[in-house]
Design a protein around this nucleic acid. Structure first.
Lengths: 337, 337
DNA sequence: GTTACCGATGTAACCGTTTTCAGAAACCGG
DNA sequence: CCGGTTTCTGAAAACGGTTACATCGGTAAC
């Protein structure tokens, strides 16, 4: 068996209380007593049991984070930003990917029993489930998800960039704009879609532009490719849009690739944009919107820490700026590669 | 205060032992007693304390994973594969990124007190530190890191693909080959470099080929770009190599971009390859080596689980296959874009 | 009508710490 | 040398569960 604090106490000829004090530098312990204790601990190769300590302190010193998935660079970066800040504050990080799992809410409930606070990201569990956690006293920060009541939230400013992107498309001469994505799938997508509509509202009121929703399941390249194929097939019945505004880069890349393979020139015939600015977007010359991914995670970690330590009680909602990055896929004029 | 098992016991008019049995379905409990207990638990909104339970059971039901960083798609995918398998087996996942942190070993020691077993990935902590963990009885699986004694390990087969890549470069007409990367930085890189040397050994013995090491710090695109710039600058003193074999895709992409910007044709003048097959590699037409990233993580999780549950005691070393993916960046002949 | 056994329950020990409280020891000024 | 503080230290009570063991009806077997 592993040595316990009692073994150390006996070995050093003191009580367990003294051992505890000596090891954690709390209370007052005479110098030579402390030395004796440390010596004994050393000899026995003693490490205090985390479980015993946690139970006594009634805290886990760990935070959780729940996200839908980790594929794609987006979530990974956010989680990394989260971990970095959490580690700085001596809190371990428990991760949980709900992925497609059916019992997501149960898994989150389980996670909640293992940490002092948690970040809930995007479309993972229902608002009800979140409120249930909060009502049980669990500190929660929402990430990439609209506020629920007074629960803290951290979001990227989707709307501003969506509007900028819509205007950009108009400026580049687009009249028939299609948005590719499932607004119901994620609040972020919802905002991108509604921001785009706003940007085109005026022009479309004047009959100068139209904006349509191409609703899809999934966020991957294959989904984007499928959208392109469908658009190409029905081309004679319904002309191709002038611009595809996609909910993320993977959709856009898959779509663009398929268009190019069918000899539909991007950007000369069709403009394409994505969202996220993943590495591949740079190499594919894809216009997109950059989000401060690490900062999203880091900010969430900071807010959560404030809640857990009780440093703050009034709710906060952070909106982090995003940046429109225009590249070749929406720049017909300079005709640069 | 949160209700405890004693509150439930009192409320249901039974002893805490019975509550425990009823809630966890262990031992035998009469049907109506169980119902009464469940009812009471429900009413009090009782959730058993994880800490109390863990202490009594003397286990965390959680596994750790230590990795150098999470940026780049590689680690993220591996961690995701790990999480997926761990979650399947009802074990939570604690992550720790050592990143640049100086006190990595201390952080790992700390993590070790919070889980029943852990995966140690790549160049994060010293062999000594790993052995110290193992000697304290902690189940450990090494991932993307060569075996240490009898400690379980999971690795991608770097060597086979490195050899295949070297032969491919020769077949494409390369004579002067440069490897870009720091073999000391990671065991994976070390194997790629030595595999490449093996592939060229015969040709280089006959004086038909040369292979040089361009040692660099870092794994990012900027590092790759810097290598390209240096090579271009010293071009008159020392001609450009025919092929750059890079330790990962980011290096290769940065390097290739800089070459292209300087009007050095890839692949016509110089061949370039990477490693990992990140998404951007596909769009940049980069020849690379694909690793089964999710499977790496998943396999590690499985091995670790076997150790933790004691289902297996003799050590195992898994070598997962990789796949050479040739693309435009090493195919001068078809002259396809 | 015993005896033996079994299922249901309770009692209490235990998991390994932290921390309160109180007493002992050391110190200090007078 | 003595009362009054401080400083150290230990006993014991948490923290919130699990589980070995004992107990007690009740039932089946003989």
């Amino acid at each position: 068996m592993r040595p316990t604090i009692r073994d150390v106490a006996q070995h050093a000829g003191v009580s367990i209380a003294t051992v505890s004090r000596a090891l954690r530098d709390s209370g007052s312990v005479r110098k030579d007593t402390r030395a004796r204790v440390l010596e004994a601990a050393e000899q026995l190769n003693f490490t205090p049991s985390r479980l015993g300590r946690q139970l006594a302190e009634r805290r886990h010193a760990a935070n959780g984070i729940v996200f839908p998935d980790l594929s794609g660079p987006y979530y990974a970066e956010v989680v990394l930003g989260y971990e970095a800040v959490a580690a700085e504050r001596e809190r371990s990080v428990l991760i949980l990917s709900t992925h497609g799992r059916a019992n997501a809410e149960a898994m989150v409930e389980d996670l909640a029993t293992r940490c002092d606070g948690m970040v809930v990201m995007g479309r993972t569990i229902s608002d009800d489930a979140v409120e249930r956690l909060v009502s049980r006293g669990m500190p929660v920060v929402l990430l990439a998800r609209p506020p629920i009541g007074d629960i803290d939230s951290v979001n990227a400013d989707n709307r501003t960039s969506a509007v900028a992107l819509g205007r950009h498309m108009l400026a580049q001469g687009a009249r028939r704009v299609a948005f590719v994505g499932d607004p119901a799938a994620s609040p972020d997508v919802q905002e991108r879609w509604s921001g785009l509509q706003d940007a085109l509202a005026e022009a479309s009121a004047k009959g100068e532009a139209t904006v349509d929703l191409v609703s899809v399941q999934g966020f991957g390249e294959e989904t984007g490719a499928a959208v392109a194929r469908r658009a190409l097939e029905s081309r004679n019945r319904r002309p191709l849009p002038d611009a595809f505004v996609c909910a993320n880069d993977e959709l856009a890349l898959g779509l663009m690739d398929t268009l190019l393979a069918a000899d539909v020139a991007v950007p000369d015939r069709v403009l394409v944009s994505g969202w996220d600015d993943v590495m591949a977007a740079r190499y594919a010359g894809l216009t997109t919107v950059r989000q401060p991914m690490r900062a999203l995670g880091g900010t969430a970690a900071r807010l959560l820490d404030e809640l857990v330590t009780g440093a703050r009680t009034e709710p906060r909602h952070e909106l982090l700026p995003t940046e429109l990055v225009t590249r070749a896929s929406t720049s017909p004029h300079p005709a640069q590669k």
